[in-house]
């Protein structure tokens, strides 16, 4: 194994570009998944099964099929429908949509985790629907939800390399491009691998800490 530090120096500018794109995709993808997941979770609680069943099927379908193929679908099919977006935007939509099916479960578990007595107490006080949700249920649910959402942000981060499939220049793709041009593969791929561990391991420790603080 011959490690060459000058190759590392050469790669670093590209690496930082890749880090920026990776973090951007992670942040925006997470926000999208938080918002969409809440939509699914609330739709799945509506009384009408004409809403629940199609939404339920859609969510299950997205969750049980590969993100990579979904990205291809969006990337090649959206333009046919007249929607023109950049590769990065498509990637963010795809990854956000995929993870929203997981966050929907998190919200559902969080909401169901609030004891039934809280609903009954809100009803006994004749609180309006909005207050019941806004002042009673969600503030209690959020404590369970935050650490779980955080864990999905980490999982999402680790799935961002798939965006290279549609040409987004995130970390892994930067390494690949660099390798294709210079025929130096060892350093760039190793650096990217270590970078993922260096970001996600401390993040997961932090989530564990949050979990202990908030849930218990």
């Amino acid at each position: 194994m011959n490690w060459n530090w000058s190759v590392v120096d050469e790669f670093m500018p590209y690496f930082w570009d890749g880090v920026r794109v990776t973090l951007q995709a992670t942040a925006l993808g997470s926000l999208l998944s938080f918002a969409l997941g809440l939509v699914w979770a609330l739709l799945l609680r509506t009384p009408s099964r004409f809403v629940r069943w199609p939404v339920g099927f859609f969510v299950e379908f997205i969750r049980n099929t590969p993100l990579l193929v979904q990205l291809f679908f969006l990337f090649y099919v959206l333009p046919e429908w007249g929607v023109q977006t950049s590769a990065l935007a498509t990637g963010i939509i795809g990854i956000g949509l995929h993870y929203s099916t997981y966050t929907a479960e998190v919200y559902r578990a969080g909401i169901e985790g609030v004891p039934a007595g809280q609903w009954e107490a809100a009803r006994a006080l004749s609180l309006p629907r909005g207050r019941t949700w806004g002042a009673v249920i969600l503030p209690q649910a959020i404590r369970r939800v935050v650490p779980a959402l955080g864990n999905y942000v980490i999982a999402l981060l680790k799935d961002t390399p798939m965006l290279l499939g549609i040409g987004v220049l995130e970390m892994l793709n930067q390494a690949r491009q660099f390798g294709a041009q210079t025929f130096q593969y060892i350093e760039p791929y190793t650096i990217v691998g270590i970078a993922f561990i260096l970001i996600s391991y401390p993040a997961s420790l932090f989530m564990r800490y949050l979990e202990r603080r908030l849930v218990h």
Partner: peptide
Amino acid sequence: RSTKAGLAGGAQ
């Protein structure tokens, strides 16, 4: 309930 929760972190 949660599917991928276990898939997230590096620690635990």
